[in-house]
Nucleic acid binder design. Sequence first.
DNA 1: CGTCATAGTTGAATGCTTTCAGACAAACGG
DNA 2: CCGTTTGTCTGAAAGCATTCAACTATGACG
Lengths: 353, 353
Amino acid sequence: MKQIAGMAGVSLGTVSHVLNDSARVREPLRRRVLEAVEALGYQPSQLARGLRRDKTNMIGMVIPDVTNPFFPAVVRGVEDLAFSNGYRLILCNTDNDHAKELAHLNELRTYLPSGLIVIPSSFSDLTVQAERYRRAGTAVVCVDRLPKSWNGDSVTVANEEGAYAATRHLLKVGHRRLAAIIGPLHLTNAQERIAGFRRALTSVKLRVDPEFIQETNFDRSGGHAKARLILKMLPRPTAIFAGNDMIALGVIQAIRELGLNCPGDVSVIGFDDLDFAELTSPSLSSVSQSGYQLGATAARILLDRMTGDESQPKQLVLETQLKIRESVAPPKNNSASGIAGADLRKRNRVRTG
Amino acid sequence: MKQIAGMAGVSLGTVSHVLNDSARVREPLRRRVLEAVEALGYQPSQLARGLRRDKTNMIGMVIPDVTNPFFPAVVRGVEDLAFSNGYRLILCNTDNDHAKELAHLNELRTYLPSGLIVIPSSFSDLTVQAERYRRAGTAVVCVDRLPKSWNGDSVTVANEEGAYAATRHLLKVGHRRLAAIIGPLHLTNAQERIAGFRRALTSVKLRVDPEFIQETNFDRSGGHAKARLILKMLPRPTAIFAGNDMIALGVIQAIRELGLNCPGDVSVIGFDDLDFAELTSPSLSSVSQSGYQLGATAARILLDRMTGDESQPKQLVLETQLKIRESVAPPKNNSASGIAGADLRKRNRVRTG
DNA sequence: CGTCATAGTTGAATGCTTTCAGACAAACGG
DNA sequence: CCGTTTGTCTGAAAGCATTCAACTATGACG
């Protein structure tokens, strides 16, 4: 920068003004500066700039795991908007690990990001942390799930309604013995989805055996393990609502391994409608939500905040859409599914209202 | 920091020394400083630190698109190693767009990252850019593909061998009319894969009709479009080598749409062995490579460089592994596949040697 | 007890940019 | 022709942590 000033015969201040349009500079000078910048291939140090301005052009993004196909979509949504507005993303994976999340959140702040978008892993930290960010003038938007008593901006989907619709569909095609395998219940999206599932059952006066609702991680192996567990209970459920598509994948795998057929013996419906849902065999029915939209919307709110929007916290809830594919079919007529075995274990507590 | 110094009754210099172990500090002072740090919840500004040290604890990572399932795996590999060594990732998507890549590369430098890991989108820029980074003392590692005349560190997989093995397998089960749909040929991995494909054919003295080798994007829609094109040629190929799994997905989709059967009418083999490969219908045969390994290895090299490894550039090449699943089967005996239609168009230039 | 080496501490400079207050010149009004 | 205003430009401070040279105890030794 000093070089530029020298070459253009102006002061540092002027160079800065040209670069930032922060003051009127006469055309000839302006041109000389710009030429020098060009000639030297100068790029301002974002570090120094950030230090001085108390704010960088970075947006922090904290997600559980890039490797889970749902999250990259969100990231992408954020990145697109961020990039086109001159912001860059600094990405952190928490692995749903409390401690890692805290570490990231603490360190990220010292980079003075302009904004922060979080898919929270823990139920409490963020509320405290976000307060610190806000005090430092950094807007925070929460996506996909919310920490306990979150009162800032957020973008989520209508999990409860989505799950309700999915379950209603299962009921409509004739299923009566339903099970659910859901993600960690400290996550609000898992809570809401299971609530939707329950409400649907209640709406037709059906009760579920508590053991037919299993909590696990939002991943394939979790779904697989719990599905094996559930499918060995007799009488076995004729349909399983999976908390997300990864779980659903595990469920389908388990069904196959146990020599059963999906949807013949057991119908499966997932949540997320990931790209591969229509490619699996059988193709997966799912509650569709757009990760990209989620991310883009969050970024939109953030950008607005960054440009001075001081309105009340926004808690946006995006719609979901039910996608029925091959993995859901009516139950077999006499739903023989293991009734024969309903002997010793008295599992027949599920009853029609 | 000034507060800390005040509270502990020492100078700024001492605080810094305690925090960085940059000089011996007597125990009582040291303790007082640490206590003050604790009490105030102080975290050093990474910005100021970076500015002073001419280096931040960030590692820049430039990839084509997080949304393509292969790349997150690489990212994850990098992140794991980076994080556990105290480095953070700053992630940029280029969308295979030359200009965007350049912009990212230029701006990223001004953050003074400690290292840079790139999956290049363009064939030339990086070589120039990397030189600038190196002059600034920043190590650069190239992953997955290389730009033209790259002479720095890199980690790739044995694309040529992988493609060769895959093609040999197709030949072995009896296919003679092979087609390939490959990614952009300015990318080295695409070049190498198609080279492997060709070498396999040559090795059994088979020649391919040039129109049976189609170039497109490494994505589903590309594979879909080109597959539709190829499958309408008569006689139609009995097997298609897809440049990656996304392309393969598009191919399978096209096969289905044209009322054909995979693997009955057309066998398909992909490259990457993405997670979903075993879940599609039919499950996808593929050349397996580990994105995670790729990323982790690159990060390893980078970390070594950052701690002073000045040895010759390393050009690591990881092995691939052939995974045969349902999508490959022997061709139908009389490979009737449209010979009937081999009329007007004289497409019958493929011949056995 | 003076001297000297050593270990421990400090103050100030430094990195790069932004920004604020002030300087300067030209233009304007009286 | 002088005082103001307006429009440009400059110089220096500030932001935060690191680091180097310099300084002060501390203790050893003669």
